[in-house]
Nucleic acid binder design. Structure first.
Lengths: 146, 146
DNA sequence: GCAGATGCGTGCGCCGTGCACGCTATTCTG
DNA sequence: CAGAATAGCGTGCACGGCGCACGCATCTGC
């Protein structure tokens, strides 16, 4: 029972992760928002939306890539008008990365489109099942092995 | 209600996908199995385990990368002894990619370890909740927007 | 004040990836 | 049956993201 459950979940998650790159869903979402950005920019953008204004090192830890990568992504996002480099008044070495209004709107729009697709699928489910799945998924992400 | 559900699911899936690469879970799993392989080899390996013996073009369609990438991954996996290039008796142009016994065992072992981690998390859940989540996730992967 | 530490951006090399090409084998056509 | 067209495969090439290491500016402890 439980072993079957764990195996099922593992297989499903593997497929989910694999297909997220295969179908190019994020790539399409990002490409619609701004020119010259690829899907690799999305984790940086959404990570910054979660953390709020922070420096490159902290954002790198959240996203899980090197600081240099964050710095480069930040340059591209800045050029696209989604992000702003703001000098930290308390520390003149530090640079605070903050979303512009356009950046906040872009994240909201991408999340909306993504949620829209998911709702279109969940709408066909029995009433309680979708909510149970959403609750379980949320809990799994919070407590899970990732 | 439903909009909150869709947004929650979208956010959770985004985090799940992001962290799967950030934490290097697959990378660690693959590195334990064979030397000289990175996490990018896992989709090819597990995809071949799902399809069974098939040619490079079909496997490329399943994994979602170019045929050339499959061919290169196949060379590395072949060198690692996990995969075998087998001439197709019916078509001497074609090359069937088949898992060796070591390859089958490697996939099974990686799945087992992954499932083990997940079960360790799910074990603390209320009895019915884990099963409901597993069922929902399975259904979502089958029907979902990916 | 000065040495060590911290934050940041950039040059460099590595590697995965897609595209295009060439080769071999197969299939279609007259 | 022969020749052209097609399909499957592997590889050279260029592109781009990534981590590492370095240099510069700034802060902090003694």
């Amino acid at each position: 029972m439980t072993s079957l459950t764990g195996g099922d979940v593992a297989e499903a998650i593997g497929l989910l992760i694999q297909r997220s790159t295969r179908t190019g869903l994020y790539a399409a979402l990002v490409a619609d928002i701004a020119e010259g950005l690829d899907e690799n920019a999305y984790p940086v953008l959404s990570g910054l939306a979660r953390t709020g204004p922070c420096n490159a090192a902290d954002l790198a830890a959240v996203v899980g890539i090197d600081r240099s990568g964050v710095s480069r992504h930040a340059s591209r996002l800045e050029a696209a008008g989604l992000l702003r480099r703001q000098p930290d008044p308390a520390d003149r070495r530090a640079v605070l990365l903050v979303l512009t209004e356009a950046g906040v709107a872009a994240v909201a729009e991408m999340r909306r489109r993504f949620a829209e697709r998911i709702e279109a699928c969940l709408a066909t489910w029995p009433p309680g099942e979708a909510e149970a799945f959403a609750r379980g998924l949320r809990r799994f992400v919070e407590e899970g092995p990732f």
